[in-house]
């Protein structure tokens, strides 16, 4: 079997597994997994910029929030349906990532981290400033009756799970296709050695911009879906913490692997969920895990798997 076929087989297999799981899982884990799949989509988006292109952004919460508010505000004030709202959310994130990319990509390294952080912070503060519409930190509910696409009630657990799975599968396969394509190889080349890639004649800036925009748009799709599926939009999703989360998930799962973000999100979610039953300082363990990862498994879970077991893992 060719490498490409193996890669497609693996990822389609994972999607099939997730599909089957919904019939087996008890209600609690069923609900969790729906949530995890949406968050993992956020991480997949983040991974394209960070894992494959080496763009360490500390501001991806702004894209997630752009998606969430793009959906929620248009539904609330312009009477958009859930489907057009979802589209509006994705478009908002797309436009924001274009604007941020054009400015922030003029910088590299630490300056890029700070610039993205600052832009995200101003998005967060703007949500508070326009509290008249956004209801600030308190946020607002997207009413259950409105959360319907093509007659499918997305607040129903079965439908929600399916919607989350569709979103995740789509983004997972898109990112796989992307990385197998020449475009993806250029991104990896930029991550490994930007100067050399430039000298080889590639337009590094345009590739980085495209990467950031794909990354931001997928993150925005996740944000819009999160608002739609769980019925709430609030400013807390735009805080720094929600920029750090995808970084953690991706690092844990394995930066620069297609499946890593899902693995990382899943692992972290359950780690926190279980630890919070034992101690209120559950983030302590998150911290310890991060330190141990950097000391002993710098590639993350899937990165180590690739290094030791499945060498063809994309």
């Amino acid at each position: 079997m060719s490498k490409g076929a193996k890669q497609w087989g693996l990822h389609l297999g994972i999607i099939a597994l997730l599909f089957v799981l919904q019939f087996i899982l008890p209600a609690y884990h069923h609900g969790n997994l729906a949530r995890i799949m949406v968050l993992a989509t956020f991480a997949i988006g983040y991974n394209i910029a960070f894992g494959y292109t080496g763009l360490l952004s500390l501001g991806h919460a702004m894209f997630f929030a752009a998606g969430m508010y793009g959906l929620a505000l248009t539904m609330k004030f312009l009477g958009f349906s859930a489907a057009t709202g979802l589209l509006a959310g994705i478009v908002s994130a797309f436009v924001l990532s274009l604007a941020v990319g054009l400015l922030a990509l003029r910088t590299i390294g630490v300056a890029f981290m700070i610039v993205t952080l600052m832009f995200a912070q101003s998005v967060y503060l703007s949500i508070l400033y326009f509290g008249k519409y956004t209801r600030g930190d308190e946020g607002f509910v997207i009413q259950q009756a409105d959360r319907v696409i093509a007659g499918i009630d997305l607040s129903n657990p079965v439908n929600r799970y399916f919607a989350a799975l569709v979103l995740l599968s789509f983004c997972l396969l898109v990112s796989l296709k992307l990385i197998q394509a020449p475009f993806g190889r250029v991104l990896i080349a930029i991550r490994e050695n930007e100067e050399r890639t430039k000298m080889l004649g590639y337009d590094v800036f345009r590739h980085k911009l495209a990467s950031l925009m794909i990354s931001g748009t997928i993150s925005g799709a996740a944000g819009a879906a999160y608002g739609l599926l769980f019925g709430y939009a609030g400013a807390s999703f735009a805080t720094v913490q929600y920029s750090i989360f995808p970084l953690l998930w991706v690092l844990l799962g394995g930066a620069g692997t297609i499946i890593g973000p899902l693995a990382g999100t899943l692992f972290m979610f359950y780690l926190i969920d279980l630890l919070s039953e034992i101690t209120s300082a559950y983030m302590l363990i998150a911290g310890v895990v991060l330190v141990l990862l950097t000391l002993f498994a710098r590639q993350g879970i899937m990165g180590e798997v690739r290094k030791r077991v499945i060498r063809w893992l994309p």
């Binding site: 750090i244 690092l251 911290g287 991060l290 330190v291 950097t294 000391l295």
Partner: peptide
């Protein structure tokens, strides 16, 4: 990354 861990 390690210092983010130390932060927590």
């Amino acid at each position: 990354v390690a210092t983010i861990g130390i932060l927590y």
